[in-house]
Design a protein around this nucleic acid. Structure first.
Lengths: 194, 194
DNA sequence: GACATTACGTACTAGTTAGTATGTTTTGCA
DNA sequence: TGCAAAACATACTAACTAGTACGTAATGTC
């Protein structure tokens, strides 16, 4: 990777780290460059504005991260309903990047920026749509295998499951990790009822 | 109400209106006073800091609002499971204050401030705990009436339902009102399965 | 109706913000 | 090796931020 590409990536990774903890608006460009070797000149050479950097961060950092931890575990599922549960369990309890008190970077950014910035809203919507599609496809497989009733609506369940994830990330911020476990218990019950 | 008390309430109501739409940190004190007749001197006479005002807003504006729309509908429930569903439906589709793109004020504030400020976190936790207690009690009634299995765990279900609400408020910000209806369909299915 | 307390109003400050102007250095390539 | 373009570095600006200093007006009480 060229030196310039490294600089760009460093900015995006540091921005992601800080925005996850402090929020997008509360993270200043000075914050981002203060803890890296990058200067303001470099920042504005690579991104013409803070917004452009934010959108690049969604596409170049968050999309790949989401694919690895939220979609890949669902592909080629032997036991579809269980794969959904295990994906959620790994996401909530095993992922070393996430910290309970800071929630989920994608959910946080939706909450803060979707109402304020249409470009952010669209980029983040695509992120969630891809996840929901993956869950839906897994459920379609479950239907084919006869693991769930053919009359159930995979898309509706995918929304229920993904929004459930969003919600428990929010609850985790006030209650801590224990509520993750309670949630997972009820999620398992819900999934096995299908 | 005395003139001073009116001033104080005006500040809190305007702050609530703006913070709901822009977030707590992004709403400046200048924003709040610019659209009222209140001056900065009055603001800092009634509140010694922005934080103190924020906490007063939680207690004096958000608590009563939460009680009216999230707890009162659950009291004296004839048909407990249905009351929970109807409360959620009214909250999502009927409440004239809420705007889909801005989500729920309480959930927004948890998302933004719980990780950053312990006093906010505690105040908001109390808010949610009270709601969960109300849901739990309704479920206990449902158990007594034989409407749900006695082996089910009301507290666990209350967490699942309340975090589901939090999550769908987040999804509404990217998908709009249609996802509320899809969510409600699945919630009804979930509740009736109990 | 004097007078103390409450309730403001105005002007300021020190720090922070995104972004810019204007330079210098590094890099790829003929 | 020369040289243009890419990739930075530094110093600035105008607007905004929470909070303060210090003044004035309203209000209740005797």
């Amino acid at each position: 990777m060229s030196k310039a590409a490294t600089t760009r990536l460093t900015i995006l990774q540091k921005a992601f780290y800080l925005i996850y903890r402090k929020g997008y608006q509360a993270t200043s460009i000075d914050d981002i460059i203060a803890t890296t070797q990058v200067t303001k000149g470099a920042f504005f050479y690579h991104f013409k504005s803070k917004e452009e950097m934010g959108l690049a961060m969604i596409h170049e950092i968050m999309y790949p991260g989401m694919y690895a931890s939220m979609i890949k575990p669902l592909l080629d599922a032997d036991d579809p309903l269980n794969e959904i549960y295990e994906m959620m369990k790994a996401l909530l309890l095993k992922n070393p990047f996430f910290e309970v008190k800071y929630g989920c970077p994608a959910i946080n950014l939706i909450d803060e920026m979707a109402p304020l910035n249409e470009a952010f809203r669209k980029a983040l919507m695509q992120l969630i749509v891809q996840w929901q599609e993956a869950i839906k496809n897994t459920l379609l497989i479950a239907q084919k295998k006869g693991k769930i009733n053919k009359e159930l609506m995979p898309e509706q369940i995918a929304l229920f499951v993904s929004s459930g994830y969003s919600g428990i990330r929010n609850m985790g911020k006030i209650f801590g990790k224990t509520c993750y476990k309670t949630y997972l218990n009820e999620l398992k019950k819900y999934l096995l009822q299908q």
